[in-house]
Design a protein around this nucleic acid. Structure first.
Lengths: 223, 223
DNA sequence: ACAAAAGTGTTAAGAATACACCCATGT
DNA sequence: ACATGGGTGTATTCTTAACACTTTTGT
């Protein structure tokens, strides 16, 4: 094994957030070739001695100015390894999905122009990043039906309409209001607060919060 | 990036089979240190220019004498990357789960003593391979409830008792016979043949087969 | 005739779906 | 008073879960 040369190892991070009601993904603009100026997931090299999560944290900070702790949830997705995915040579990429609330992206000169883009209207992307995003989106669609993971995308207190609209944005289909509420409340994941959200000329909406802001797997699944 | 050194990349393959009614996993015996003589998953280095699936195929053949094509199903599981998992240095391992029927393991001198071991009674294992097997088992438990993937573990023709027993071995719990049959048949994944399986002093059992021997995702899930 | 596994049906409880109107507020 | 989004209930269908006896065969 003395002549063994490993492929290059990279990480790529799909960070989802609900921006103006749309499921959106964080993209940077590549600073160098290949794909200079093209939008891409925040990603980069993984050196020996550093875990893939360490690499994700480092890259997220250096390219998008975001701390890993600003993500409420993160999980590993899949490792993309086709030999031709990087024109420079064989690069194997471990992908992650992160979820966050409305987040302030710093406007720093050192960063690679990080911005959120709605998933339903993505720009041209570098590498196989469309596939990675699509994989992440599929995973998220499943995950919100059998876990409480939406908490990671919502503010601490939210209305049931906001909650339903989060599901609708992710699943990209509309749901029946009465059935949604009945079912979600029967799962017992959220508690009603005594506060209301007032917003314009209509009845104020009761605010709810999740009992646990950590991953719970449901006994019966949703939708 | 000229000083960039990637971690070593390896693959590990969890091959499940039902042996004498027990969910079992293929293990080899390590030929060299570290963990010389200890049981381990068939795994090994992944060189640049080769996909992880290529590496899985190569390793499976060279260490266990099995061709990738003898597996009816294979999927990538997860990438294990804790820095301390290999005492020799940082090694990132992409793990796979393969499923096969009763298979003939060659008794070849060049091989690393490949054998199937029941999951409920595993020997001491090298590295973090217990964790990898446990991850694979969990994945398989989920997968059999929302897909037709058991086909990959069963012979072409099988009785409903065999099918139920496959579910019971994997899920490690017993199921109600009438409910199991009613539900499984209502899914429409299998067709009854006109043949029967005779086996001792009792009523012969009708043989069934799967309509499709490829992955199908069910609309409603099972169990 | 008996031992051993195959095969079969009903009832009750819970979950999913479809669907339309009144309520509280600001202007 | 009206426009806006918030909030609620019922009936039907489908799914799940619990449960025990008869059938076919070989010895």
């Amino acid at each position: 094994m003395s002549v063994y040369t490993p492929p290059i190892l990279t990480v790529d991070n799909v960070v989802f957030s609900l921006i103006a009601g749309d499921l959106s993904v964080l993209l940077i603009e590549r600073a160098n070739d290949p794909f200079k100026g093209v939008r891409a997931l925040p990603g980069g090299y993984n050196a020996a001695g550093e875990t893939t999560m360490d690499a994700v944290a480092r890259v997220l900070k250096s390219k998008a100015g975001i701390n890993l702790s600003e993500l409420n949830y993160i999980e590993q997705l899949y490792t993309f390894d086709t030999v031709a995915r990087d024109p420079r040579g064989h690069a194997v990429s471990v992908s992650y999905m992160g979820l966050c609330r409305d987040i302030v992206i710093p406007l720093d000169k050192g960063l690679q122009n990080p911005q959120f883009f709605p998933v339903k209207n993505l720009p041209k992307l570098a590498y196989d990043h469309v596939d990675i995003i699509s994989y992440a989106h599929t995973r998220l669609c499943f995950k919100i039906t059998y876990t409480n993971v939406v908490w990671a995308l919502l503010p601490n207190m939210f209305t049931l309409t906001q909650l339903q609209s989060a599901y609708e944005s992710i699943l990209m289909k509309s749901l029946d209001k009465r059935n949604f509420r009945k079912k979600f409340l029967s799962l017992g994941l959220v508690v009603a607060s005594k506060e209301f959200f007032k917003d314009g000329a209509h009845r104020p909406a009761r605010l709810y919060k999740f009992k646990k802001q950590s991953l719970e797997v449901l006994s019966r699944s949703f939708d």
